[in-house]
């Protein structure tokens, strides 16, 4: 349990750093780090397959996406960065306090869930659940991926014409 607690605190700090850090590249890296820590939590919570997905798609693919977007859009000039930092400090200054207050109050509450849990599932293998019971979701995934392809074709095509 203590190990869990440490990982959870690390998760919160990674997310906080992602939001607070001043350069966008670091922010993207922070997001990957958050995903990676989340992966560890998911392994610990008996969800290995989903954890692998999280690691490869979120920590891998989406970070690449963000980094390439950031490099596609030009960096700001020195002057703008300074101005930007001032702006950000005034706006983001409250977040750590808010997070700390929130975490302390919530931990102090320490609600005990006494749940009348539903019966355990009959099928325990995730492969069976995913491929046999949730076929409609698989179909949905395929359609979503196709629409993503169309989105990329339509939104990024301008470059080819020029």
């Amino acid at each position: 349990m203590n190990l869990h607690l440490v990982i959870l605190i690390a998760l919160i700090f990674a997310a906080l750093w992602t939001v607070m850090t001043r350069s966008l590249i670091r922010s993207a890296i922070g997001l990957a780090l958050t995903s990676a820590i989340l992966t560890i939590v998911m392994f610990a919570l008996n969800a290995p397959l989903a954890a692998v997905f999280e690691l490869s798609v979120c920590a891998g693919l989406i970070s690449v996406l963000f980094v390439s977007t950031i490099s596609l859009t030009h960096p700001l000039s020195r002057q703008e960065i300074l101005q930007h930092m001032k702006d950000r400090l005034t706006r983001f200054w409250y977040l750590p306090i808010l997070v700390a207050v929130c975490a302390i109050i919530l931990s102090a509450l320490d609600i005990k869930f006494s749940l009348k849990l539903p019966a355990h599932e009959t099928e325990n293998d995730v492969r069976v659940v995913l491929w046999n019971l949730r076929q409609f979701d698989i179909l949905g995934q395929i359609i979503v991926l196709l629409s993503g392809v169309f989105g990329v074709v339509i939104l990024f095509r301008e470059k080819n014409k020029k």
């Binding site: 979701d137 949905g140 979503v144 629409s147 989105g151 939104l155």
Partner: peptide
């Protein structure tokens, strides 16, 4: 949950269509 999946399909298609 399938309802959510199919709502997202509709939504993704409509983002692309708006743009």
């Amino acid at each position: 949950f399938s309802l959510y999946v199919f709502l997202e399909i509709t939504a993704v298609a409509s983002y692309i269509m708006i743009a």
